[in-house]
């Protein structure tokens, strides 16, 4: 039987959740025995080369590219897991929710104390750049998400236990200490 295939990505996140995945330490060897990775920063595969079983999503959706990638994951993965507070509730980037995008861009590129010599008052507008969304969206408000792993980042043990439970089909029994929101 072939191994289950896992894909991972970071949308509007800080890669902290990926770092937490690496915090499983030597169990990573065991993980590679259990699963095969496809599109993921772990193996640097940039695009889906086959249908995957599990998609781990870090970060929420703050721009059009995030939406595109998330929908691509939904299409290519049987199970989607929101990993971390940003994927679940927007997290730190969602602090801008409620502030008009125009004001956010003005603060970042025109009026902010660290703005350099943008004398012409240009806002980034190249068509190559993804469009900023009106607010940051939790992943499950964009596509159907099957499971959620809270934490900032989720404890390595939580990611590990959840992955193993998904792959083996065993019941997930989580100790109190591993489900935390910070």
């Amino acid at each position: 039987m072939s191994k289950p295939i896992v894909a991972t990505t970071s949308l509007a996140g800080c890669f902290g959740c990926h770092m937490s995945l690496l915090d499983i330490d030597e169990r990573i060897l065991e993980l590679f025995q259990l699963v095969e990775f496809n599109k993921s920063p772990i193996d640097d595969i940039k695009t889906f080369t086959k249908q995957c079983d599990i998609g781990l999503i870090e970060g929420g959706c703050c721009n059009s590219e995030n939406i595109h990638v998330l929908k691509d994951f939904r299409k290519n993965c049987k199970i989607i897991v929101s990993v971390g507070e940003c994927a679940i509730m927007g997290g730190l980037p969602a602090l801008r929710n409620g502030i008009p995008v125009k004001e956010c861009l003005a603060e970042a590129y025109l009026d902010g104390p660290t703005v350099g010599n943008n004398t012409e008052g240009i806002l980034p507008n190249n068509e190559e750049l993804p469009m900023i969304l009106d607010r940051v969206y939790p992943c499950h408000e964009v596509v159907k998400v099957d499971y959620h792993l809270p934490g900032c980042p989720p404890r390595a043990d939580l990611i590990w236990e959840a992955l193993v439970a998904l792959v083996t089909g065993n019941e997930l029994k989580l100790p109190y200490e591993v489900v935390k929101f910070d």
Partner: peptide, 10 residues
């Protein structure tokens, strides 16, 4: 609680 069942209102 893993995720609230209601949409976030921000």
């Amino acid at each position: 609680m893993m995720v609230p069942r209601f949409p976030y209102s921000f």
